[in-house]
Structures are given as C-alpha cells and as structure tokens.
Simulated scan of single mutants.
Amino acid sequence: MSRVIQTDRLILTPVAEGDYADLCALLADPGFCRHIFPQALNAEEAWFRLLRDIGHWQVMGYGNWSIRTREDGRYVGSVGLLNYQRILDPAFDAIEMGWGLSPAFQGQGLAFEAATAAVAWAGQHLKADHLVCMISPDNGPSLALAARLGFARYTDTTYKGEPVILLERQSVPGGGT
C-alpha cells in the first residue's frame, strides 16, 4: 500500500523527522494555532507532536501526511486520518480526519485538494465507511471546508474544556467493502 499521495499541485508524505523545522515554524505561528491550541507551541512541543505523528503511522498504518507543493517542495501543512483515543463525549465511532494549512497557503483550494485525496485513500486502503472530525465553532474556514468535503454536524460538545463541533461524513468512496 502506497503511503505517498500525489495530486495536481501537491505531494502528501507521511510525517517524518525531516519535517521538524517546517512543523516547528508552523506550530509557532499564532495565526495558525488560534483555533487549535490555547497558544502557539514551542520547539519541544512540536518535537513531541512530530514523534506522535511518526508513531501513529507505525502503530496504526495511517496518520498525518505532510503536504508540500509539487512545484517547489514548500511545506503547506498537514492532513491526516487519525485515532488519537480522544476522551470525548460522545466518543468518536470512526477514523478522525484533521487538517491544518499555513496561513500563507490558505484560500487557494489546497486544503480541499489534500483532504479529498486523503478521503479517497481512506476508502481505498482502510475501507473506511465514514469519517468524523472535530472543529472549533470559531473556525469558519475549517467548517466551510468540512461542509465542502461532505461532513455534516452531528453534535456540539466540549473537548479539554473548549466548545467543539463534531461532524461526520457518512459516505467514503470505496469504503466499507
């Protein structure tokens, strides 16, 4: 099973140690982090996230991909299929999907391109019949992307004391077979 995905404009590769500097810069950007973390992350916290993502691929056989432009290899952000064992009520009943792009690359359709490819990969390789995601109610762009990807809100709850919206996509091409 190939873990590398290519689209018209992007290359998605499983997160690797070589992504650390780019990940550090992204996670230190308050504009990127404002809907995800209470504050930007430092280099140590970025390292732990990198190790988590590498380990996720090793244990689960899927995880976060680093997104880079095909044209020049610039780091765009990440998209992933996840099982983080979140302590959440209601608990997730499917693979979680997540994404995050550097503010410099937002508004260009790259998140939709990467996420669409990840959904197709989930259907083909994981036979996922549906996916879930969790988004801050203040993150309008991510909510719009989720809707464009076919996710629908199914409940509101809290995660680590913060309000979140849980969404699901009921159909995954090639999934559930």
Results as ranks from 00 to 15, higher is better:
1 M>D: 04
141 P>V: 01
76 V>S: 08
14 P>E: 02
94 A>S: 13
156 D>Y: 01
18 G>Q: 12
18 G>M: 06
160 K>C: 09
128 A>H: 04
38 P>T: 12
152 A>G: 02
41 L>M: 14
54 I>Q: 15
91 A>E: 09
125 H>L: 00
38 P>N: 03
134 M>L: 12
110 L>I: 06
156 D>R: 10
139 N>Q: 08
34 R>T: 13
109 G>R: 08
170 Q>G: 15
16 A>E: 11
26 L>I: 00
42 N>T: 00
126 L>R: 07
86 R>Y: 13
167 L>R: 07
129 D>E: 13
146 A>S: 03
102 S>K: 07
67 I>G: 01
168 E>K: 13
48 F>N: 12
4 V>L: 12
136 S>K: 10
44 E>T: 12
30 P>N: 04
149 L>M: 11
112 F>G: 09
132 V>D: 10
84 Y>T: 01
3 R>W: 10
7 T>I: 02
110 L>Q: 05
109 G>Y: 05
51 L>A: 10
104 A>E: 14
77 G>M: 08
94 A>M: 06
117 A>P: 10
167 L>P: 01
117 A>F: 06
67 I>E: 03
142 S>F: 02
129 D>T: 11
125 H>Q: 11
56 H>Q: 04
44 E>N: 12
31 G>C: 07
86 R>L: 15
125 H>R: 12
82 L>Y: 03
12 L>E: 03
